[in-house]
């Protein structure tokens, strides 16, 4: 009756709402946790002590050098055809503008193809991307390499429509990447509303002029840490089931959904197992990653350090797509392992969430999955996720403690049973 006991404790018992309450305390105390910030440093310190206080084993920090970028003051003002102060959020790793800002005419494009076609018009201008939202992975390319593509055709800055299917005038930040052989230009996200408005203005032949000011600065890499805590296995302690989320966030909102929820249901999994007095056969290892938002920096460091033991990893799990009402478990692995995961998910029939879907993945576990380790991620109701993601709206208010309880129950049952089976999950 172990699965039933986990569900009972997480959803109906004493532990209900615990992961939500713990997350509330952290995000209200520390706020958002940008890579390289004092906030992230404080969050790591608090979490380290909390995991120790929770009587977890082998609690330790693993050093990682992470990027340190600060946005500073920023503004984008439309000067022509009318005065309009636009909401703007600089993109991670962007350079700043000169203190007087960059004032330039705008070229609005709807795609990279259109930018290439209209390349001769782009020189000296601010390129505004008004790309439609298709899905996250496709549309995010504009945010990631919008500045590089604009700079290639001589633009002086780029403003990118926020990557979201819905907006109430909310800019959404995220990481962008420069290319070595292309000049670096400042780049930021604007709202869907402003991108669409400028697109309409441009289609009417109206000249648009914007003054963009960004105080963004890149500093040398700084020290940070992945946090590790365990329940050591009783029979095969050297073998590992890894359960994880990332502790860093962007510097807006509270970083509650991305990825406070994932980090805290992962902690909750170990807490619930500890509360029930269980000890699986192999080690259940919690990792709270640092600097995921900058491109999985902490996860890369962890992989480099631990890949020598890759044959001992039965399953790697990451929750980084919200902890709203779960729809199932995404899984990548061999057919045999998938059949086993389906059996395990049947244990969740009391919650009526038993689906095993394809494409288990996560920025922080992908290296392991690519190397052949079975991987799982939590799939939940994503309807709201990208409305709030990377914006000032990413706060605890969006979250629901009852949904988090269910997410934690699933996360715990899966991680515990895989850790306690007599054999590791079979690989291809």
């Amino acid at each position: 009756d172990i699965a039933k006991a986990i569900i009972e404790l997480a959803v109906y018992g004493k532990a209900q709402n615990r992961s939500y309450d713990r997350l509330a305390l952290l995000v209200d105390t520390v706020g958002p946790r940008l890579s390289g910030s004092k906030n992230l440093e404080m969050a790591i310190r608090i979490m380290y002590q909390s995991l120790k206080d929770n009587d977890l084993e082998n609690v330790h920090l693993e050093l990682v050098k992470i990027p340190h970028w600060e946005r500073g003051e920023e503004s984008a003002v439309m000067l022509k055809p009318r005065f309009h102060e636009m909401a703007v959020l600089g993109l991670g790793s962007s350079i700043g503008t000169p203190s007087e800002g960059i004032t330039a005419e705008v070229l609005v494009v709807n795609s990279f193809d259109e930018l290439r076609r209209r390349a001769p018009e782009a020189k000296g201008k601010i390129v505004v991307y008004n790309q439609p939202y298709l899905n996250y992975s496709r549309t995010v390319q504009y945010r990631f390499r919008g500045a590089v593509e604009a700079a290639k055709v001589g633009a002086v800055a780029s403003l990118i429509r926020s990557v979201t299917p819905f907006s109430i005038y909310s800019p959404h930040t995220g990481i962008q990447k420069y290319q070595d052989d292309v000049p670096k230009i400042p780049t930021a996200c604007i709202t869907v509303e402003d991108a669409e408005m400028m697109s309409r203005m441009a289609s009417r032949g109206v000249k648009i002029v914007i003054r963009l000011k960004m105080g963004a600065r890149n500093y040398p890499d700084t020290d940070s840490f992945n946090i590790v805590a365990e329940i050591t296995g009783r029979k095969y302690p050297e073998q590992v089931v890894l359960v994880s989320g990332h502790l860093d966030s962007w510097d807006v909102g509270q970083g509650a959904i991305d990825d406070g929820g994932g980090a805290f249901i992962s902690w909750e999994a170990l807490s619930l197992i500890r509360d029930l007095g269980l000890r699986p056969k192999r080690t259940l290892r919690l990792v709270l990653w640092t600097a995921e938002e900058q491109g999985g920096i902490g996860a890369f460091q962890y992989y480099e350090l631990h890949k020598v033991n890759i044959s001992n990893y039965s399953l790697v799990m990451e929750s980084d797509a919200g902890t709203f009402l779960p729809t199932g478990l995404q899984f990548t692995g061999s057919d045999k392992a998938r059949a086993i995961m389906k059996e395990i998910m049947n244990l969740l029939q009391p919650l009526n969430i038993t689906q095993v879907l394809n494409h288990g993945e996560g920025e922080d576990i992908n290296l392991w999955i690519q190397a052949g380790v079975p991987g799982a991620s939590l799939l939940d109701n994503l309807y709201k996720y990208f409305f709030f993601h990377h914006s000032h709206g990413d706060t605890l208010t969006v979250m629901d403690p009852k949904q988090m309880n269910i997410a934690a129950a699933i996360w715990t049952v899966v991680s515990y049973v895989v850790a306690d089976l007599e054999e590791m999950l079979p690989r291809s």
């Binding site: 172990i2 039965s314 395990i344 049947n346 049952v413 007599e422 054999e423």
Partner: peptide
Amino acid sequence: QATYKNATCQKTFQKIQKEIASYG
């Protein structure tokens, strides 16, 4: 020990099924 090094599942799926059912 059931390490991945052997790469193959020593138990039949039916046995694993039964083992998993014992958690339910």
